[in-house]
Simulated scan of single mutants.
Amino acid sequence: MTRFVARKSLEWGLAFLVFTFFSFLLLRLVPGDPVLYLLKVDELQVDVAEIDRLREELGFTDPVWVQYIQWLSEVVRFNLGDSLITGQPVTQLFKNNYAATFELAIGGILVAIALAVPLGAISAFRPNSALAKLASGLSILGSSVPSFLIGLFMMYVFAVTLQWFPVMGRTGWESLILPSLTLGIAVGGVYIRLIRSTLLEVMSTDYIVMAKIRGIRSKTLLTRYIARAALPPVISMFGVSVASLMGGVVVLEVLFAYPGVGKLMVDSVLRRDFPVLQGYLVFTTCLVVTVNLVTGSLLRLLQPHLYRKKVSR
């Protein structure tokens, strides 16, 4: 396990360098100049010499690779820099906004689990039941319809028409329900299909069929054999979908005016606030890397025989 974590850490460290460098480069190629926005050239007449002086002060006149090395040297010391617009430390901005983002992400994950696990299992064990048909409908809905369309429908029905929940903002636990349900349906639809197909595949294997013939109780068979064999694909899928999950959270934050990191990113894009955007990319990359390391370790614990075979080869 130690060798696995060390090898994966090295691989993800190299991937982190490549990803951050190209994202750093692409941000510099985006049309628009943060210096012009900072000086508000559209509203005031600013001398060209003042623009050049500020560009040099911010380091924008250096080659991109020099800017990247300077930025990376600060990142390894856990310093993401300061916002070009507000002057606040990027870490402080994230600290103020990520609490709401994590609330929404955790709420969506809990809703997805609450939907996917029972409905996926019912679809596998009782494919002709009414709940199985409901699961099929939710699966198609979550897989094919964009999350913002689901969110607009939820807002119209439950906030505008029925007035059960607030339309927008973060005013309490009530304001978390609609975006969490929207995210949970969008994510849960994929997992319903995955759990159903995985369970059907596991139940058709020889050792499960033989266990049934031997008379092992259904409860023991489900908890000790079927569930354990069905977990690895679901865990792998979760590790892969973390990035898209965070992207969905950002979209729903903008839609529901939820004051998380999504609104901060939209404002930063419009204002070309490079340090904030780069800090978000670093944080998201580290989150994806961490989740993949954890899921990889869990897979090794659940299926040690597969990795022993790889080593012996």
Results as ranks from 00 to 15, higher is better:
Val90Arg: 04
Leu245Tyr: 13
Val75Cys: 07
Leu301Arg: 14
Gly172Lys: 04
Pro34Arg: 01
Lys133Asp: 02
Ala130Val: 09
Leu104Val: 00
Pro146Gly: 02
Ala100Leu: 01
Pro166Leu: 12
Val266His: 10
Leu36Cys: 04
Ile113Asn: 07
Arg228Phe: 02
Phe24Trp: 08
Ile109Arg: 11
Leu152Ile: 14
Leu221Phe: 03
Ser175Glu: 12
Trp65Gly: 04
Phe125His: 03
Phe238Lys: 13
Asn292Val: 10
Arg272Asn: 06
Gly142Asp: 01
Thr223Gly: 02
Arg228Thr: 00
Ala230Met: 05
Leu17Lys: 05
Val190Phe: 13
Gly260Ala: 01
Leu93His: 03
Arg313Val: 08
Ser9Ile: 07
Leu29His: 04
Gly169Phe: 02
Thr171Leu: 03
Gly189Lys: 01
Arg272Phe: 08
Tyr98Gln: 02
Trp65Pro: 06
Ser123Lys: 11
Val282Phe: 15
Ser218Arg: 15
Arg313Ser: 11
Thr285Gln: 07
Phe21Val: 03
Gln92Arg: 08
Val46Ala: 04
Val276Glu: 11
Ile208Arg: 12
Met237Phe: 13
Val291Ile: 15
Phe274Ala: 07
Asp206Arg: 14
Phe238Ile: 13
Lys8Ile: 00
Leu138Lys: 10
Phe24Gly: 08
Leu38Trp: 00
Gly262Met: 11
Val251Ala: 05
Ala130Glu: 03
Ala257Pro: 08
Ile235His: 08
Asp206Ile: 06
Ile69Cys: 10
Phe274Cys: 09
Leu231Phe: 06
Ile122His: 10
Leu299Asn: 13
Pro166Ser: 09
Met155Gly: 05
Gly172Trp: 02
Val160Tyr: 14
Leu80Tyr: 04
Val160Ser: 13
Thr61Cys: 00
Leu10Pro: 03
Val117Pro: 09
Phe256Arg: 03
Leu181Thr: 09
Leu200Met: 15
Gly107Phe: 09
Leu281His: 08
Asn79His: 09
Leu26Val: 13
Phe102Gly: 05
Val242Leu: 15
Phe4Leu: 12
Leu141Gly: 02
Arg3Ala: 01
